[in-house]
Simulated scan of single mutants.
Amino acid sequence: MKQRAVKLMQGYLWLPRELEWDPEKELPATIELSEVSASLLLDEVEPPFAFFDDGTPSASQRFYQLTIVVMSDLDQHELHPLAQELEEKLRPALETAPAGVGWLLLEDLREL
């Protein structure tokens, strides 16, 4: 089977506008997994909603779309273990981010 670009995970990262923390410098651009290297792509985006559940305006935050991509010839159902491994390796970097940084990351497994 021919290698193709596949999203393993996609989601959002947000932080208060006044927080001087740069996710592009603090998060790894490449994450080594058991079978492949995953690339973390960050794009600053407009908030995808107006308010958080607690009523905080989303305009008070900087939002980034996170997309994590691999080149793989694995079948879609074979990619799930890689997504789990990726989450285990990325979670510590997200959890050590400063207070106020939030994220939502979901398994995607779609070909680009």
Rank of each mutant, 00 (worst) to 15 (best):
P92N: 15
A93D: 15
I31H: 03
P28E: 10
L27Q: 01
M1L: 07
L104Y: 15
Q65T: 05
T67Q: 14
E87W: 14
E87K: 11
L79W: 06
L112V: 07
G100N: 04
V69R: 04
T67V: 13
P57C: 13
E111V: 00
I68N: 03
L74H: 13
P47F: 08
D73Y: 12
L112G: 09
W103I: 01
S37D: 13
T56F: 15
L15T: 00
R4F: 09
T56C: 11
A5F: 02
L13Q: 08
R110P: 08
A97M: 09
R91C: 05
E87Y: 12
L82Q: 08
A99P: 00
P92L: 12
E95H: 05
T56N: 15
E78H: 14
W21E: 02
L40N: 01
T30A: 04
L94H: 08
L19D: 12
D75S: 10
F63E: 08
D53L: 13
T56E: 15
R91W: 12
S34D: 11
T56H: 15
I68L: 06
M9N: 06
S37Y: 03
P48M: 11
G100T: 00
L90H: 11
L66S: 01
H77Q: 09
L105W: 02
P81D: 03
E87D: 13
E32K: 03
S60Y: 12
V36K: 01
A83D: 10
A83H: 04
A5D: 02
Y64N: 12
L42H: 00
E46T: 12
E46Y: 09
P98H: 09
R4K: 14
V101K: 04
D54K: 10
A93Q: 14
E35L: 02
P48F: 09
E85R: 04
K89M: 13
P57E: 11
G100R: 00
L86W: 10
I68S: 03
E24Y: 10
P98M: 08
K25W: 01
E88R: 10
L15H: 04
E78R: 14
L15F: 06
L33F: 04
L66K: 02
L19R: 09
E26P: 05
W21K: 00
T67Y: 07
D54T: 07
Q3G: 09
L106G: 06
A50N: 09
G11H: 04
F51L: 14
V70N: 05
A5Q: 14
V36T: 04
G102A: 06
V6P: 02
E111P: 02
R4C: 07
M71I: 07
A29Q: 03
A83G: 11
R4Q: 00
A5W: 13
P23S: 10
T30N: 00
A99N: 07
A97W: 03
E32F: 06
L19P: 01
K89W: 12
L104D: 11
E32R: 11
G100A: 08
E32N: 11
P57A: 08
Q3S: 07
P47K: 13
R17V: 12
L82D: 02
V36R: 05
S39L: 02
A93H: 15
G55C: 09
E44H: 01
W21D: 06
L94Y: 14
S58I: 07
